Simulated assay, not measured.
Amino acid sequence: MDPRSEVLLRQAKLFGGPVLLAGLPADGLLGELPEAQGWSWLQHEQLALEARYPGRCQFGTQVPAQAFAGAVLFLPKSRELTDYLLAALAARLPGGTLWLVGEKRAGIERAARQLEPFGRPRKLDSARHCQLWQVTVEQVPAAPDLEALARRYPVATADGELQVVSLPGVFSHGRLDVGSRLLLEHLDGLPQGEVLDFGCGAGVLGAALQRRYPASRLHLLDVDAFAVASSRLTLAANGLGGGVQAGRGIADAPHDLSAIVSNPPFHQGVHTDYQATEQLLREAARHLRPGGELRLVANSFLKYAPLIEQHLSPCRVLAERDGFRVYSARRP
């Protein structure tokens, strides 16, 4: 059981009714709270919960439509995403109760101040290196417009300027990260056909690929509903096409790809998690056609080259700068 869930269950009597659990972990909490419903914006966690508790966990960027008497937000890493989620939940809870639970290292003590616009927050519990806070929603906000909270910024590429649209919670929100910048400079010579931007984030790599290779068919895949929405906005802002989908990881990607391009994540919330990237490296060959290429950027300290060579083919370093490397390997 996740420690945040354990803290909730110490106060289980508070959550016995129709409570919405927002951003809940994929553990047994729904089994302990039979009237609760879940809402997740991470596809792998939502699918795991849906398989275990059918019909009890929804996926997306918007608060589920069904009625609830109170809501618990599991503190996300991003402050901007926390602001959006708290406002979206509070807008549905006039006079109701909103709880915030999170780990101390995730900033729960600081984040508790984000409850103050809605009422008087108070700490209910502190255990398992986590805290649980509560507020009665006395000042009810207007439901936030998610798209209005987007940050838009230009990115110069060899094929012209792109407009990137980044929603709260998306990796490198509102700015181009160093790794993606390096990879954008090394997109030449990719095989054309079906091309995947894996872990697409705000869609900057996918948009650049579609601009560079207009004859190719573009696919964008991310586990995060906010990233999927951002990528769709970025493609639309640049008049570009492409299929954007949520997925658990490379297992949900198309097959017979000519290229997989990625700046893969290695954090999930405040935790370091290499699983999705390592699975990509192990399974890329199954999704590439013969001669298809895997090209990715990663921190130099991450030992990805041996995994690529073990599961795909000899690996080349195309570039190295500012602590990042661009790797390339082709399916035989």
Rank of each mutant, 00 (worst) to 15 (best):
L281N: 02
R79I: 11
L93S: 11
S166I: 01
A207K: 02
G241L: 07
T97H: 13
L205G: 05
A202R: 10
P144H: 12
L196F: 11
L205P: 01
A71K: 08
L167R: 05
L33Y: 02
G241R: 06
A87E: 14
L100T: 08
H186L: 11
A36T: 09
N238C: 08
G28R: 10
Q58C: 11
N238R: 03
A51D: 15
S258W: 03
R248H: 09
S40I: 02
L187M: 10
Q131Y: 12
A51P: 05
G31E: 04
L209Y: 00
V165M: 06
D145I: 10
L24D: 02
H129K: 15
P144W: 11
R282A: 12
A148D: 14
E194P: 06
A26S: 09
P3S: 14
Q192H: 05
L20Q: 06
R330V: 04
A236L: 08
Q163K: 14
G203F: 01
H219N: 14
H129P: 07
L75N: 04
S5D: 13
A215Q: 15
P54E: 13
V326T: 10
T61H: 09
F198Y: 13
F198K: 02
S300P: 00
Q66C: 03
G323M: 05
A12H: 11
A106P: 01
V155L: 06
V317D: 01
R286C: 08
R52V: 07
S328D: 10
V170P: 00
V228C: 11
G239T: 05
A253V: 04
